[in-house]
Write a protein that binds this DNA or RNA. Structure first.
Lengths: 167, 167
DNA sequence: CGAAATTTGACAAAATCTTGTCATATTGAC
DNA sequence: GTCAATATGACAAGATTTTGTCAAATTTCG
């Protein structure tokens, strides 16, 4: 309307970054919805699927706190999912030779099957949907997201710069 | 342990996409933490900030349902944030000439100030942290994320393919 | 070894988000 | 204009996540 002062031009970097943040929020929401939809009839939600993923990726069974750290989730949120899945027979707790209280979380047969099926569905879904997207572009984007995470992690490790609290 | 059959090799596309999904989840978590930290003393959380962002981006005041759709959030989650922020004096409801019940959400002076300050902090923080990242790379990543979203949206619009439910 | 710091899960309270239902309002088809 | 379909906010019940506190177990350091 009125002309008003141009204020600060806002650097290209700044605009680019804020744009990225928004896209990440949105895609995150989409992915949760997709995950919930694909796993619904298997008794899986996106939250559960993430926990099973951590277990599956690790060569050895892990306690709850380790799963949380590996996936960047809150310890108690993982605990909640594990409790629920245990009640549903998807995971089982095994004694931990190295720690009396920190039991190891392992998938049951049922859990393995559900996770395998969900992964398979997700993979097929992705292959169909992203068929003509060059994998290089996807990989490049992933690499950038990783780089951004590295920088954020570095900054939170140096609270002097930003005042971001540690988790 | 045992050798077992090689199973399916899993295409590069598939691996790339699953990797992207994980990075998006993680970065999303980081961003929520950053947003909460940067806005804490302003009475803003990431959820609130997203709502104010929608208001700020729109040239005209919007009702709750529109804000939710614009940001890909659940209607009731936005309603919750708006109710809270109204109690805190960050937003205000204005009569909607076109709808008797759907009031328009507008920022109060206090809300404007908080949002402005939060944005400024976020911008400065991003500029410092991402200083030597080529904006082109960030923009390219955003563009890819947008493309992925377009494809997901297309697929949910065609439930025949996937069975994903509409929001 | 022994004390301090850290890690971990249990537990609980509170905050936030989701899901479902409902009445009202608006829009679109006819 | 009337009627069905859709959009919207209110409300409530439940699910999930967050935050705090605590005690036990482990690790670190002297």
């Amino acid at each position: 309307m009125a002309k008003g002062p141009p204020a600060e031009p806002k650097s290209r970097l700044r605009r680019a970054y804020v744009g990225l943040v928004i896209e990440v929020f949105r895609l995150n929401g989409d992915q949760l919805a997709v995950g919930n939809a694909l796993g619904a009839d298997l008794g899986l939600t996106s939250a559960r699927w993430q926990v099973l993923g951590a277990i599956s990726l690790s060569p050895v069974p892990l306690p709850v706190a380790h799963i949380a750290r590996n996936m960047g989730l809150a310890r108690q949120a993982v605990q909640y999912s594990v409790d629920e899945m245990r009640a549903d027979g998807l995971v089982r707790l095994e004694p931990n030779p190295h720690h009396k209280r920190a039991m190891l979380v392992a998938m049951t047969e049922k859990g393995e099957a559900a996770y395998r099926e969900a992964s398979e569905r997700h993979g097929r879904w992705a292959e169909t949907l992203m068929a003509d997207l060059p994998p290089e572009r996807i990989e490049a984007a992933s690499e950038l997201l990783r780089e951004v995470q590295r920088r954020i992690a570095r900054s939170t490790a140096t609270p002097a710069t930003t005042g971001i609290k540690e988790t």
